[in-house]
Amino acid sequence: MPGKLTLGYPSARTLRKSLPLVVLAVVVVALIALPLYSSAHASAFSINNSLQNAASLGLLALGVGLTMIIGEFDLSSLGVYAIGGMIAVKYGADFPVMGMLLALALAVVVGGVQGWIIARTEISSVPLTLGGYIILLGASHLVSNSQTLAYANYDVGMWLDGIFGFVLSPRIAIVLGIFVLTAAFMGWTQLGREIRAVGGDRRASRASGVQVDRIIVGIFIASAFLSALGGALFALSSAAAKPDLGLSPFIFAVTAVLLGGVSLAGGRGGAMGIVVGVVSLSLLETLFSLLGTPIYMVNVIRGALLLVVVVIEAPDLRRALITVRRAKSA
């Protein structure tokens, strides 16, 4: 019996573990083979553009992903992303770093307050951060007077997006660097292991002396910080900020995180998985854009992919697979 169980278990896990890399490989092959089945081809610029988009949403995905790893869900990160960009543009006209620091300071406060409430009251993070999202969106409209603000200092954005090494840019490098640092931190430090433990079994980690509350507050601060930084970099690079960016950045981020092997139940996944998810998804969108696919079709594909990922992630599926295997072997 136990033998059969372990037989069924790894293959579901293998499927899940290999999914991000499989998707990445399929998309890369499809991009390279573009001229074989269409009149389009992937240029260095289109790959660079795809990575720019990945950089725009990568930090948001990392923020959401970190909260998911500890078994929480930070909806407010989308609001922080929007207002972070708005503050960076509005107050960074003369000194870009000033605007950026202001945005990050606000994020630390927002993340700290939300994390503290969640840790103290053990309230569910979904309704709480939904409230946070709505408040931040309102604040973003207030700051911008409900208008799209242009950033006249467009040299900053052009520097951030300046291409080097064929497909890279300073912004891509910054975002990638943050991913690498986060992965190193999560993998090689005691705290990193504790963070994952909190997501796996909170009560057990608390019993074994892990400072669970501090970790929750810290992760929410990190989530808000990363989202604000991502929003600010995005706004500076597009030389404009909009008070409400809609839901699509968040849908992208969550799909990428799930695709990258982070579990909705918590305790699993890491920064490297998330970055693979973000890049695969971004390249996939570039593929459809190069093929001239209408936006509504791209939305259908996005939705379908999210569905596939969630189904593969589903704990029930694992159980169902095991049952099927058992039935077969019986």
Binding site: F45, N49, Q52, S238, A240, L245, T286, S289, L290
Partner: peptide
Amino acid sequence: DAVLEVQQMNEAISQQ
């Protein structure tokens, strides 16, 4: 939508 337009311009350039 100025923000969306910048992304669309990037997309347009990629299409060559």
